[in-house]
Computed example of a mutant assay.
Amino acid sequence: MPKTVLIAEDDKDIVELLTLYLSGSGYEVLSAPDGEQALELLRSHEVDVALVDIMMPRMNGYDFIKAARKTSDVPIVIVSARSMPADKIVGLDAGADGYITKPFDPLEVTAYIRAMIRRREQGRESAGTAGEDDAPATDVQAAGGAGEAAAPTSPDAITCGELVFDPHRLTLSKRGETVPLTAAELKIMAAFMAAPGRVLSKGRLYAAVNGEPAIGGASSVMVHISNIRAKLEDDPLRPRYIKTVRGLGYRLDG
């Protein structure tokens, strides 16, 4: 049975673009131009992932998320042109599970949705297994968080504490669970994982993403770092892995 994605977005062009890509990937798509209609669809349909804009008429994205969280645990991803860290913090605190900034690559959004659905299904499977066995978690389960052992990695995989980066599969995992990252975010994490504990400047991270020196564009690195923290950190407001070194850049701690 195909998975269902709910799009809460008042920009018709964006809805058409996402619908085209998601339908082509085998998803059923529901859409609503405002938060109130989106909430009605969420209550009346089985939804697997919701993509939500912040600025919408009648009910904005923040209010939609707060209302949805009263009755649903569906993964919610904010898709918004608002890229300030404060906007992301408010969205995540409201109950969102991820944040994608516009403009975006539809293929990256599709990959993000696949990862969200996979993590949700793994969580349900592990919860069912725990209920049937009614036994304490094993060491592997405790380390995996979601009760799943880490997937096999290539011999060249890089480990830093609980993080594993596989350069062949181009995946980053934390406690055995894949962290859904965009292409740019993966490039930044590859740079971090290659030099754990070392301070990397914004210019160096910009070059890792774009392949060229930063000329007035290094500020975009801050947005990528904020997005990575939102997906990687248990508490993005108090990051454990990616630390800011004032005046110098960022450092990855294991």
Rank of each mutant, 00 (worst) to 15 (best):
R119G: 13
T71P: 05
D234Q: 04
V221K: 05
S173D: 15
V164G: 06
N210M: 01
P57C: 03
A38I: 03
F192M: 09
R43V: 02
A150F: 00
A194T: 06
R114C: 13
L42Q: 02
A157V: 02
G26R: 08
G91Y: 05
I76D: 07
G123A: 14
R204K: 15
I14S: 02
A8M: 11
P239I: 11
A191K: 13
Y112L: 11
S154K: 05
V90W: 07
Y27N: 11
P152I: 00
L41K: 11
V140T: 06
D53Y: 00
A115D: 09
T110Q: 14
A195N: 12
L39W: 10
V179S: 12
M56E: 00
A150T: 02
A149F: 06
T153Q: 12
E40D: 09
G26W: 14
D235M: 08
V245P: 08
F104M: 03
A38T: 01
Y250G: 11
E46S: 10
G145M: 08
A149V: 08
G123H: 05
D34T: 07
G161T: 06
T101V: 13
L200A: 12
A207Y: 09
C160F: 05
D13R: 15
M59F: 12
V140K: 00
T101A: 08
G176C: 12
G35I: 05
P136I: 05
V223N: 04
A190F: 07
P2N: 07
D73L: 07
T244M: 04
V77M: 09
P236V: 00
G145L: 10
A68K: 00
R43S: 05
R251H: 05
L172R: 12
T153N: 10
A67C: 01
K231V: 04
A111L: 08
P85S: 03
T4C: 15
A127S: 13
E108Q: 06
Q141A: 04
A135C: 08
D133H: 13
Y62I: 00
T110K: 14
R240P: 11
A157P: 06
G147R: 04
D34H: 15
T159F: 11
R169N: 15
L22I: 15
Y112A: 05
S126K: 14
T153P: 10
G197T: 04
G26A: 12
K70I: 04
I76S: 07
G147S: 07
S72M: 03
V223L: 04
A130H: 14
R82T: 00
L30R: 12
M84C: 00
V179E: 09
I7Q: 15
G161E: 03
A195W: 05
N227R: 12
A68W: 01
M116H: 07
R82N: 00
R251Q: 11
S31A: 15
L39N: 07
T159H: 09
A143D: 03
F64G: 01
K187N: 10
M56T: 01
S220M: 08
E177F: 02
Q37K: 15
T178Y: 06
Y112T: 09
A8I: 15
T19N: 12
D53L: 00
P2Y: 02
K66N: 04
Y21P: 05
D34M: 10
A195C: 06
E16M: 13
